[in-house]
């Protein structure tokens, strides 16, 4: 299956307001993606709408978020069911500092329904680092049955390499890197599967990087097994 596991909806303040869950699912289907993960910063509140939209457009969803750890590393926590994503959301939300959203400076944070109708605006800035460390976030993700994947680890900001300087031991299901560095990082970290995804913040970017995963189904257990056995191929 063609998979893009890193896409932001309009809920992320830095993403385009055109990134409604419906638009994401529609664009993903049009581009031939089989599976897309919704990964807003520190929030999974648009996941229920995304579930409905993916059903409508025939795309397999993963529900998750891109957590910002206390070290300011971005990490993906991905789930195959809404209940686990909601639990992760609550755990992350509880550790967000109460910095009010300055929408002019950072952008809006609307929670929307499957038709793109705004249900509420999250008033706490979602871009802040949580009080949860990388180690705690990994542990919690796995306790809730999710895939734990550090984001864009080769980037000079908000990545494990930029914030910590090396890859500490952890329950990583894969490492996400920029497409240009995929080969080099497979060599650097032979013990971990390396994936690429779009990190789309605008509709045009959805599927701009993806990977092919030969998994037997969309359950996290199947996805994890396919990753471990390196049944994957990267496209850029």
């Amino acid at each position: 299956m063609k998979a893009d596991w890193h896409v932001h909806s309009c809920l992320s303040p830095c993403a385009s307001l055109d990134m409604s869950p419906d638009r994401i699912a529609r664009e993903a289907a049009a581009r031939g993606l089989d599976m897309v993960a919704l990964t807003d910063h520190n929030s999974a509140r648009n996941a229920p709408a995304f579930a409905a939209c993916c059903r409508r457009h025939g795309v397999l969803p993963l529900f998750g978020l891109e957590a910002v750890t206390s070290e300011e590393c971005h990490v993906l926590a991905l789930f195959d069911n809404l209940a686990a994503a909601a639990e992760m959301d609550a755990w992350v939300s509880a550790a967000l500092p109460p910095v009010p959203l300055d929408a002019e400076r950072f952008g809006d944070q609307p929670v929307v329904d499957e038709h793109g109708v705004i249900l509420e605006q999250i008033e706490i800035l979602l871009l802040s680092a949580t009080g949860r460390s990388l180690e705690e976030t990994g542990r919690r993700t796995r306790e809730l049955g999710g895939l734990f994947i550090p984001s864009h680890i080769d980037r000079p900001s908000f990545s494990i390499e930029s914030q910590i300087g090396f890859l500490p031991p952890g329950p990583y299901d894969a490492l996400e890197v920029s497409p240009a560095h995929a080969g080099a990082y497979r060599t650097r970290y032979p013990d971990h599967p390396v994936i690429v995804s779009s990190d789309a913040h605008v509709p045009e970017a959805i599927g701009s990087a993806f990977f092919d995963l030969a998994a037997d189904g969309p359950a996290v257990s199947e996805l994890r097994a396919a990753l471990r056995q390196r049944r994957l191929r990267i496209h850029t």
Binding site: S70, P97, V99, S128, A129
Partner: peptide, 8 residues
């Protein structure tokens, strides 16, 4: 070098 610290 931690933006959360700068903010706080």
């Amino acid at each position: 070098d931690l933006l959360s610290d700068v903010m706080a």
